[in-house]
C-alpha cells in the first residue's frame, strides 16, 4: 500500500518536472473522472453496508457450515455474488470456514464469486460499460467460478 503512494508521488513529481501544464491537465482529468463516478461508488457502499448488516459473517458460516457439497456450492455462489467485502475480511472468513469443516469447493465458489461477480457493483459497472456487457461479464464470471470450484473439489477429492 505504501508503494502505491510512493509510486504515485514519484510519477506526479516527474510529470511536473517534465511539463507543468500537462500535469495540471492530468490532475484535472483525475478529478473529472473521480467526481463523475463518486456518487455511484457511495451508493454502492451504502448498499454494501446495509447488506453486510443483513447477511453477517456468522450467518454465512452457519449456512455454509451445515450444507452438503451441492447445496454449499449453490449457497456459496449466491453469497459471494450478492455480497462484497474487502480481502482483509473475506480471507480470514474463508480461513474460518475451512476450520468449520466447509469444503474447499464451497470456499472456492465463495471467494471466486466474491471477487468476480458483483450484484452490488452492477450499477457502477453498467455506468462504465453498458447494461449488456456488464450483465454478460457477470454471467460468464459466475460460470467460471462454478467450474473453478468443481475443479478444486475434484483435486481435493471432495466430489466424484
Amino acid at each position: 500500500m505504501k508503494l502505491l503512494y510512493v509510486v504515485t508521488a514519484g510519477l506526479l513529481i516527474l510529470s511536473a518536472l517534465a511539463d507543468r501544464g500537462k500535469t495540471y491537465q492530468a490532475l484535472k482529468v483525475a478529478w473529472k473522472r473521480f467526481a463523475k463516478i463518486f456518487p455511484s461508488f457511495l451508493t454502492m457502499l451504502i448498499f454494501v453496508s446495509i447488506l453486510t448488516y443483513l447477511v453477517p459473517n456468522e450467518l454465512i458460516v452457519r449456512y455454509l457450515g451445515g450444507a452438503g457439497n451441492w447445496v454449499g456450492l449453490a449457497l456459496a455462489s449466491l453469497f459471494g455474488s450478492i455480497t462484497l467485502m474487502p480481502g482483509f475480511i473475506a480471507f480470514p472468513l474463508s480461513g474460518l470456514l475451512l476450520k468449520q469443516g466447509v469444503s474447499y469447493m464451497t470456499i472456492s465458489a465463495f471467494t471466486t464469486t466474491l471477487m468476480m461477480v458483483g450484484v452490488l457493483t452492477f450499477p457502477v459497472e453498467q455506468k462504465y460499460f453498458g447494461t449488456r456487457a456488464a450483465f454478460l461479464r457477470n454471467l460468464a464470471s459466475l460460470l467460471v467460478a462454478v467450474v473453478v470450484a468443481l475443479c478444486i473439489g475434484i483435486v481435493y477429492g471432495e466430489v466424484f
Binding site: V7, L11, L27, A30, R33
Partner: peptide
C-alpha cells in the same frame, strides 16, 4: 492515488 494515476496515464 488510483485516479491521479489514471489522470497521468490519460495525459501522458
Amino acid at each position: 492515488c488510483a485516479f491521479i494515476l489514471i489522470g497521468l496515464f490519460e495525459t501522458w
